[in-house]
């Protein structure tokens, strides 16, 4: 009984984290049609930003919620700036190039940013556990969980709702959706496609940094943390269907559940649970679970 509730909570908590990491990636893919490997680096940049912001707010003696707001604001701001620079200086020049080439450009960016975080912080690990510690514990099904981790599930759901609302219920969101479907027609209809793309990439990068910032209090922020994240985020996005926000949610749920189940019941399989799920889903539904149908070109 307690195993069941533990599996559910662990799965939800892991899935929430997966969604945070994946949502920016899938958004960027939807609009710009590029698989952004640098997303992993955005994640670690965000985590570093959060560590410094939380560190500064703790020194200043600010309250927990201000620490968190400072961390998120710092991460989002840095993410947006890096996103803007990347899109304008690098990716903007590569639209229309073959996909693999753009992929490599983002990989190069990943290597550079990953090293840059090391340059700023040195080789060791950094911590920002204060907000998580001060929020305390909550008992669920006989086990203790930090309030922070449980709250992340809510944050993640909220983020999903916001993104869905913006895309489906606002003017800007409809413009973005139009660009996703056909950027040429959208341009003809008077939508500033270039600006939409830049803005989307900025939001995507900011979401990547946000994910890092929200995770930072739980972990040791250390060099090279982006490598693992990016493959797992890819898996989530691909399972759910590239470019689909509800897909990312579903993908995160499935992979989160798979990992929690294997960790509890079959620890031997945990190391490749994610990839087994990915291979399994793609074998049955090649375009992912919730991908929009695509026409075959003739």
């Amino acid at each position: 009984m307690s195993t069941l509730s533990a599996v559910v909570v662990d799965a939800a908590s892991f899935a929430a984290w997966l969604f945070l990491v994946a949502v920016g990636l899938t958004l960027v893919f939807g609009v710009l049609r590029l698989l952004n490997i640098a997303h992993g680096a955005f994640y670690s940049v965000g985590a570093y930003a959060a560590v410094y912001a939380i560190g500064a707010s703790v020194t200043l003696g600010w309250a927990t919620w201000i620490q968190l707001v400072a961390a998120l604001a710092a991460a989002v701001a840095i993410g947006a700036v890096i996103g803007l620079l990347t899109e304008r200086c690098i990716l903007g020049r590569l639209y229309g190039y073959p996909e693999p080439l753009v992929l490599i450009a983002t990989y190069a960016l990943f290597l550079i940013l990953d090293d840059a975080t090391k340059l700023v912080s040195g080789g060791g690990s950094l911590y920002a556990a204060q907000p998580r510690d001060s929020l305390g514990q909550i008992g669920i099904g006989g086990l203790q969980y930090p309030v922070y981790d449980v709250a992340l599930i809510g944050v993640s759901m909220m983020l999903a709702a916001i993104v869905w609302f913006v895309l489906n219920r606002t003017r800007v969101g409809r413009c973005v959706t139009a660009v996703v479907f056909d950027s040429e027609i959208s341009a003809a209809m008077g939508i500033h496609v270039g600006r939409i793309k830049t803005a989307t990439f900025m939001v995507g990068a900011a979401l990547g940094c946000l994910a890092g910032a929200l995770t930072a209090p739980k972990i040791a922020v250390s060099p090279g943390m982006g490598v693992e994240v990016i493959v797992i985020a890819f898996a989530v996005v691909v399972v759910g269907g590239l470019g689909s926000i509800p897909g990312a949610l579903l993908g995160a749920a499935i992979i989160g559940l798979a990992r929690a189940l294997t960790a509890h019941l079959l620890p031997e399989l945990e190391i490749f649970a994610v990839y087994l799920v990915m291979a399994g889903v793609l074998a049955v539904r090649p375009f992912g679970l919730l991908a929009p149908a695509q026409a075959r070109r003739i």
């Binding site: 533990a6 599996v7 909570v9 662990d10 799965a11 908590s13 892991f14 984290w17 086990l143 981790d149 995770t215 739980k218 972990i219 943390m225 693992e228 994240v229 990992r259 929690a260 960790a263 509890h264 620890p267």
Partner: peptide, 9 residues
């Protein structure tokens, strides 16, 4: 980065 499931076990 996340040891939630292992810690639960």
């Amino acid at each position: 980065s996340d040891y939630g499931a292992e810690i639960s076990t």
